[in-house]
């Protein structure tokens, strides 16, 4: 199936000389939830800005639904809904008025039933006649999402959707995003909250210094880069690792109170069985054991750090 968004060799240099994007190529699959991760200033918002028409690309192309976002912008933009990072709303208009405005702006005829559905979905129906300036920050965020959904987009960009949002709204938003995916909407979200990407994304892209460091299926990424570690708590401290366990991969930790094993990629069950057998043979008992798996956040931090380290060493300089 054709990707719903095809970004090819996209670069952006701002008038200030800042290279925000450097030949980024990326395909977004129809109907997926794609999380774009990256530190501040990595180029996430520029990438979204170019796709949505807010920023002019220096070179490269972006196709949305097969339409070039510059040459055939009208057809491309009809497909896209955008919830920007900044909380920017009108102040004096009512919730209904501003959402109705958005629908019209994107070329759709008035449809009060559709507006009602969106407002109810976002728990805004009770506030429909309130002026936006009287709403809380979280409610304003909901209004921005409602505006982006008013024209029934096929692609939804959520730029840092959880910024300044309380836990309840974040959970609501995740539910809503999943429901939208069920309806076939493709969702691209940028986030600082790795938890958010881990919770929702099908695929993850990491962008740093304007370059796409990796794009990977979330589970594959966690399998490939995620570290799984087994910790055995010992009943008594050990001075040193028994000779019988040398070369087993076990290391003494916590001042001799723990044995730690880092799994090699592969069959974990096999490794655990072998390990326990060797422990038994060496006469080492343990009173508790637990495993720990690195989160997407750990992976992300490692990747970005690795990038920095390479830069520091003068390797991979751009």
């Amino acid at each position: 199936m054709d990707p719903i968004i095809r970004i090819s060799q996209l670069s952006k240099t701002y008038a200030s000389g800042l290279h925000a994007l450097n030949s980024v190529s990326l395909d977004i699959r129809r109907g997926e939830i794609f999380a774009l991760l990256g530190p501040n200033g990595a180029g996430k918002t520029t990438l979204i800005g170019i796709t949505c028409g807010l920023v002019r690309p220096t070179s490269g192309t972006v196709l949305a639904g097969g339409h070039d976002v510059v040459r055939d912008y009208r057809a491309a933009r009809r497909l896209i809904g955008l919830v920007p990072q900044e909380l920017t709303t009108d102040a004096f208009e009512t919730v209904t008025a501003t959402v109705t405005f958005s629908r019209g702006l994107f070329g759709k005829p008035r449809d009060p039933a559709r507006i009602e559905r969106v407002l109810r979905q976002l728990s805004l129906w009770d506030k429909r006649n309130d002026k936006i300036m009287t709403l809380s920050g979280g409610m304003k965020r909901r209004v921005m999402i409602a505006k982006a959904l008013a024209h029934e987009p096929q692609i939804l960009f959520l730029d840092e959707p959880s910024a300044g949002v309380d836990v309840e709204l974040r959970r609501d938003m995740w539910d809503m995003v999943r429901a939208l995916r069920e309806e076939g909407v493709t969702i691209i979200l940028t986030t600082h909250y790795i938890e958010e990407a881990e919770e929702m994304a099908d695929r993850v892209g990491v962008i740093n210094h304007g370059e796409l460091v990796l794009v990977e299926d979330k589970h594959a990424l966690m399998r490939k880069l995620g570290r799984k570690q087994l910790t055995l708590e010992l009943p008594e401290r050990l001075e040193h690792l028994p000779d019988a366990l040398a070369g087993s991969g076990l290391e003494l930790s916590g001042g001799g109170a723990e044995l730690v094993y880092v799994f090699a990629p592969g069959d974990e069950r096999e490794q655990i069985t072998g390990l326990l057998r060797r422990l038994d043979a060496a006469g080492v008992a343990f009173r508790n054991l637990h495993t720990q798996q690195s989160s997407l956040e750990d992976i992300f931090v490692d990747l970005v750090r690795g990038d920095r380290a390479r830069e520091g060493a003068g390797v991979g300089e751009r």
């Binding site: 949505c52 057809a75 491309a76 933009r77 955008l82 958005s102 702006l105 070329g107």
Partner: peptide, 8 residues
């Protein structure tokens, strides 16, 4: 942002 990103 909304006007600039709209199909207008």
């Amino acid at each position: 942002y909304e006007v600039l990103s709209a199909p207008v």
